[in-house]
């Protein structure tokens, strides 16, 4: 096993799934000769040709709408949208068609497509290149939403997303595309969708997060552990369907929960998780559930973005708040 980055893991997953299944076809802007703006598809056109690595016109709704037709016909399209902020042009295709096709035809047609897009900030990118609006998609019945947090997770989850019989929005944390390298299994390494990962175990509180935010959360947890406070750390992996039982089991044990996401606070997924904890584990709670989130403002431009995202300090503050409540 070699040490590879998250973007390389994405590339490896795409490569292996394409080699395994001729119905897997990639489409998107600049994914062919250029290898994708982040190089996720680097080298794939040389291996699989332009019939399977389709450089499309600049056309987000066209890309997703075309992928729906391809999926219904029997292919396994994997569409790349260059940044999450550009996915909004395809919103109607996702919400009104991809998400509903199986249900409105009672299973006569299905829509096994994957839309991959980088999400989140911290890469000093221009406006609308740092969005974290996963809640839009989680709120849409019929879509699955997956967010990997490390290279190995990215590979295993992307393989499962491509094999999944239903539409999956696969959100890649652009901030850690290259920041972390780890050993990633070669060959088969499916990670089932809908199952959260317990990254660390502790009895004092539960930290719930996903994607890029796992890393400041781990940092905060490691610092608080020096004070003898130990946390269960849950990496959700799949935001929809949500693995609520892993969350509830942990909170029943620890009695305290902090949810960390970089998305805006109001109607962010943290709100839903807090509500579920209140509904299902109220009597276990020793403190209010606390959310550490972005602000309810548009994601700022690079000069001020550092003050937008939660960092380890704020997560530490939240941990102190719930532990000493």
């Amino acid at each position: 096993m070699s040490q590879i980055s998250l973007i390389q893991a994405v590339n490896q997953a795409l490569f292996e799934e394409m080699a395994r299944n001729p119905d897997v076809v990639l489409l998107g802007e600049d994914i062919g000769v250029d290898g994708g703006v982040f190089r996720a598809t680097d080298g794939l056109i040389q291996k699989f040709g332009e019939d399977r690595i389709i450089d499309t016109p600049l056309s987000e709704s066209g890309i997703v709408g075309t992928a729906i037709g391809m999926a219904a016909y029997g292919l396994r399209p994997v569409a790349e949208i260059q940044f999450m902020g550009f996915l909004y042009g395809a919103m109607e295709q996702l919400v009104s068609h991809a998400a509903r096709l199986r249900s409105r035809t009672r299973g006569r047609y299905t829509c096994p497509l994957v839309v991959r897009t980088p999400y989140g900030g911290g890469i000093h990118a221009p406006e609308l290149h740092s969005e974290s609006t996963e809640a839009f998609f989680v709120h849409t019945a019929g879509l699955k939403v997956v967010v990997p947090s490390t290279p190995a997770e990215a590979k295993g989850l992307l393989v499962s997303a491509i094999r999944d019989p239903d539409p999956v929005i696969f959100l890649e944390p652009s901030r850690i595309y290259r920041a972390i390298k780890e050993k990633v299994p070669e060959g088969e390494c499916e990670i089932p969708l809908g199952e959260a990962r317990l990254v660390a175990e502790g009895d004092d509180l539960t930290l719930i997060t996903w994607g890029a935010m796992l890393h400041p959360t781990l940092d905060a947890a490691s610092r608080i552990s020096e004070k003898g406070i130990h946390a269960d750390i849950i990496d959700l992996r799949t935001l929809s369907p949500l693995d609520s039982s892993t969350i509830i089991q942990s909170v029943e044990k620890t009695g305290r929960a902090v949810i960390v996401h970089e998305a805006a606070r109001t109607c962010g997924l943290g709100g839903e998780i807090a509500a579920q904890i209140c509904e299902k584990a109220l009597l276990s709670l020793e403190a209010p559930v606390v959310r550490v989130t972005g602000y309810d403002i548009p994601v700022p431009l690079p000069k001020t973005e550092a003050w937008y995202y939660p960092d380890a300090e704020q997560i530490l503050d939240a941990i102190e708040t719930v532990v000493h409540f």
Partner: peptide, 25 residues
């Protein structure tokens, strides 16, 4: 045949996608 498309015109790319799949296969 696909089901009716209530949103206007949004089914056009689906036909195009099916045609792309036809060509591929």
């Amino acid at each position: 045949d696909f089901p009716v498309s209530i949103p206007v015109g949004t089914h056009i790319p689906h036909a195009v996608g099916a045609a792309l799949a036809v060509k591929y296969k």
